[in-house]
Every structure is written in C-alpha cells, then in structure tokens.
Design a protein around this nucleic acid. Sequence first.
DNA 1: TTGTAAGCGTTATCAG
DNA 2: CTGATAACGCTTACAA
Lengths: 341, 341
Amino acid sequence: MPITIKDVAKHANVAPSTVSRVIADSPRISIETKKRVNRAMDELGYHPNLIARSLANQSTHVLGLVMPESVDVIFQNPFFSSVLQGLSEGAHNKTYALQMTTGKTKDEIFQEVVQMVQGKRVDGLVLLNSHVEDRLMSYLMDYGFPFVVIGKPYQLEDRVTHIDNDNFQAAKEVTEYLLGLHHKRIAFIGGNQDLVVTVDRLLGYKAALKEAGIEPIDSYIVHGEFLKEGGQEAIDALLKLKNRPTALVVTDDLMTLGVLHMLEDLGIAVTKEISIVSFNNVFLARMTQPPLTSVDINIFSLGYEAAKSLIEKIENSKEPVKRIIIPHQLIIRSSCAAMEA
Amino acid sequence: MPITIKDVAKHANVAPSTVSRVIADSPRISIETKKRVNRAMDELGYHPNLIARSLANQSTHVLGLVMPESVDVIFQNPFFSSVLQGLSEGAHNKTYALQMTTGKTKDEIFQEVVQMVQGKRVDGLVLLNSHVEDRLMSYLMDYGFPFVVIGKPYQLEDRVTHIDNDNFQAAKEVTEYLLGLHHKRIAFIGGNQDLVVTVDRLLGYKAALKEAGIEPIDSYIVHGEFLKEGGQEAIDALLKLKNRPTALVVTDDLMTLGVLHMLEDLGIAVTKEISIVSFNNVFLARMTQPPLTSVDINIFSLGYEAAKSLIEKIENSKEPVKRIIIPHQLIIRSSCAAMEA
DNA sequence: TTGTAAGCGTTATCAG
DNA sequence: CTGATAACGCTTACAA
C-alpha cells in the first residue's frame, strides 16, 4: 500500500536501482536524474522502508541497550536517567536509534540479547550492568559482536572497551579531603557489593586511610541498600557505635538522602557532628539540607562516550579496545566541617 | 554466514517452508517432522532473523517511545524512570521490544517519528509528551497509525486512547484535605503551564476553593520551573508575601524539594508555619525532612497500561478509543498540620 | 550513467 | 501434511 522505491522509479521514469542510488547519494549519477528522482520522491511522499534496507544491508543503525538486572533498584536512581540521556545524544549525533531490553532477570535479559544479536536487530550493544556477570560478555566476545560497557568489566578490563570513572582515585581523593579536615574516624557506606564500582570506591577509601597511617576497621565499612528490606539496619548500627565516626563516605547521593533521614531521626546534626561526602552529584545533591559535598562523575558523558565509541567500533571493525576514563571532580557544598585540632 | 532457515531445512531434510511452519508452531504439521526440525535447529544453533521476518510479516513487534521534548528537564524526574519501567514491563509481557526517540527539538522528534512509522520500524507508538502539541498527533491520526498517549491529549480526549490520572479530582481532593485542616490561605505552585497535567491540577485546586466559598487569588498561583533560570523567583515572591499562605499545593515532588530548600533559607518552618501537599509520591517523598504528604499517582501503572493498551490496539485494529484512568491516592506523611481554629 | 537481475531471510499462497 | 514459488522492499554486482 505505501509508496515503494518502484513507485518512485515509475514516476521518474528510471529503474528502481537508480532510485536507490539517489537515496544513497551515489556520485556516479547525473544531476539531471538525481533532481528528477528527488522530485518524484517528494511528490509521492516516499520514505524508505528501513526494514527492507536493513535486510539488504545487513545493518540496522540501531544500538541495543542492555539494562541492569535489578531494574527496580537502579531505575529509580537519577544516575540512570542521565546515562540514558547521554546515550541518547550520542546515538542521535550519528543518527542511530536506541532499543532497550525489557527483561528483569538475568536469564530473560540474556535471551533478549541473543534475540537482538542473532535476530540482527541491532548493530551493537551498550551494557549498563556493571554487575560481575560474564556469561553475557563471553557470549558476545565469542560471537564477535560489537559492544561496550559502562563501568568496569570485571577481569576483562584489557579485552573489552569500557567507559568508566577512576573510582578508586575519586574515593581516595574524597577520603583525603576528609583527612585534610582532620577527621580520623571515617566510615564508608557503599551500595551493592558485587557492583565493581562499589569495590573500586572501597579500595580507594582504604588506600587513602592506609597512606595516612590509619588502619581501616571493618565496623566502619557497611553496605546498605536502601530500597531493600533491612538495608538500613547496618547503617543504623554504624551510627549508634559508641565510637561513632565523625565523617562518612557514601557512594551514592540517593543513599545519602537516606542517611540524612536516619541522622535526623537519631538527632545527629550533619556537619556539626558528622561530615558527609557523597558521590554522583545528581540534581538533588544541591537540594538537601545541608547541600551535599559530592563527587561529580559526569554521568552524562559516561553515556555519551559509550554511544560514541560503540558506533566507532561498529563502523570500523578493527577499532582497538579502549578504556575511556571520564574525569570527576569534587563539588564542595556544605556537608563537611573541619574537626577541631 | 549465520545459520538460516535453509540450512536447517537441509539438515532436517525438509523444505524451508516447513521449517517456517515449525517455528510458527503451525498445527498442520506432523509431530515427527516437528521434532526432527526442532532438533536440527538446536544442533545448528539456529535463531530466526527478525529483520527478514519483519519484512515478510509487515510487523516488527517493536513499540516506539516518543520522548518528551525538553528532555533535560523531564529526564531528571524520577517520574520518567517509573513510567519507563511500567512501559518496559508491559511490553515485555507481550514480548514486544522498546525503541525510543533520541531527538531534542520538536522538529527532530517529528522527523524521527516519521522515520519509525514510514520506515516500518515500529508497530505502534507511545507518546510521552503531554505537551499541547498536535502536529504529531494529527500526522499519526491521518496515517491511521496505532498510538496511545500518556497524559491527556489536548482537545482530542475523545479521539485518541490515553492513559491518565484524574488530575482535576486529585488536586481537588488535596485542596479539600487542606481546607479540612482549616487552612484558608492555600497557594498553588505548578510546573510548566502548557502541560495539560498542570492545567488540570490547577483547575481542581480552584474548584475546591470555590466550593469552599474562597475566591482563588492570582498572587497565590505561581508556576516555577526549578531547573530553569529564574524559576525560583516567583516562588520566592510568594513566600515573602505579607499575607503569606499557610499551605501549599505543589504539583511535583521534585519541585517540592526545591521549595523545602527555599523555605529553609527563609527560615520558615514546614508543618508548623506552612503545610505542603505534593504530587507523584516518588521515592524521595519519604526521605525529605519532613516526609511529604503526597498524592501517589501510580506512575508505574501509567506506563504499564499504556503499553498494554497500545498492544491491544496493534493486534486488534478496531479496538475502540479508550480513556484509561489510573487511580490515585493521598499518602499522608508529616508535611501538613491543622490550623488552630 | 543507467538498467537488469540476483540476492537478503522470512512468510504465505497454492498445489499436491 | 509438505514442497515449490512468489512476495516483502531494498541494495548491489554485472551488464549495457
């Protein structure tokens, strides 16, 4: 029913292949016919059937997004939206479309990916799940399918292109910042422990302490998942310690919001009694009471560069493996105070 | 290079069409060959090429998501993530994939939609932009393409299927709730004025006041966009009025967060000096100080039902136009107090 | 510079 | 119940 390339061909008195060439803007075609064909396309309101083109081309101009597994948890995080925004812009720049997985379990997602890949629905994939997961990655590597990951691919840093922050360094810096304010009892509140990002930040935190001659203590290191049952208990325990920390490194602004809430309940005054530095610097970091000192990790860029480098990989199959580190910076607001000497 | 239906056919000693029938699980095919073909598929690791199938079928099993225009603003809102989550689950249930637009301006988005539609890349569309925009909608209606909108399609309520809350009623109820707490000076802080949702809520607010015999005053109605320059000024002015309101209806939790912040700066105590009821009940509503009384509008369901009804429309072309109203409910926390009699 | 014709991998129609 | 064969709409050698 809709206009096809044949209709245009007839209308312009040329062969279908000629129309195709005009669309592809082939150089070896007379300006004359080019004009005539273009006019015909306009007059008929022609639009190429992208599916047919994909079939002939063996390429779709679509990027697949592999969503994180525990969507409920991560989706809520503004982090996620920002990455998506970056990906969107990166894809748009090169006129690629974006398609995403919808499954919730690891298995469902794996199946969807297989469908996308073998079903030839996408030209490449961005993995958003920095979980320590490798079935998917080994599948993709075996298959030789283009993909990049946002975050650090566990144990495959040298073999897959990834876009990440220097989370170790960032955590080290914030801890040093706190040390510089004469804090000695600094605790670490991290997210899910099998997220590589959490591990990296924990290591950075420990490294800073050690360099300062302070031995990290286990009771000062907790992993709370606010959105899950019981996640708050560990933190509650930490804050009730007789030797309560005077400063906290919290690995996510949203978690910090929760911590703030708990501190309020416990009647502990942020800044005066306890300092906090947080991560991600999402929108709400400046809206809390007090406004948070937080590490801006340039989430948008994470997504943008991921799309960009994936497209490079797609369009140039022997693009080398890359590790792209997005810079971070500590944004100082009002959630930290110096200890009295 | 990859395995095709022909390879399977050869391997199983049948014709390609037979393989196709096995895939489609056609009833008129012997259990014998069915088994044989299935085995062949397993052995060869066959996966159907979805692009080819789409071309033959004239259907993709993909839903298109038309993103809101001013992405930067809306993307940041947890609202957005939740809708996406609902859409994702709704699509997944019926094994549809999700593809989204990436453009930022109205024009870019329009062009992308045309591509998706005429390019036959998607079977239907969900419009997330409840902006008062109609070029896109009239195009789709003219074209006879299946789509649904989340929110209320301005002036087309009876002609396009949409999924919405009863925002008028919800706003009326919260205003009445405040009136019930003996507040008389109730102000309204809304978002972008050409969002239909803002208008509906404003109308509900006014209706409640009028029924209570209170004439709405202009100076008590402001529209602030926090993420934009100058958005806060109007609110600042409102809060500095000699006759400052004793209660606020704010149309979005994120905005409320901003208001909370401003109140803190002005030294006005929430609850004691001013009550607030908010909308959306996103995650952070329970994390603020004080926790917010907020209208839960079931954002997830909005997305879920949108996907569901779109798919119904796709699969049954004469599905009637529907208006699906997702219920809301006031979640009472601690941001409101009764006025002294 | 342009036309012809053979794919791309499926599905669907029609025989048998 | 199964096999040929013609679509689906486009691209791309190969000819002309």
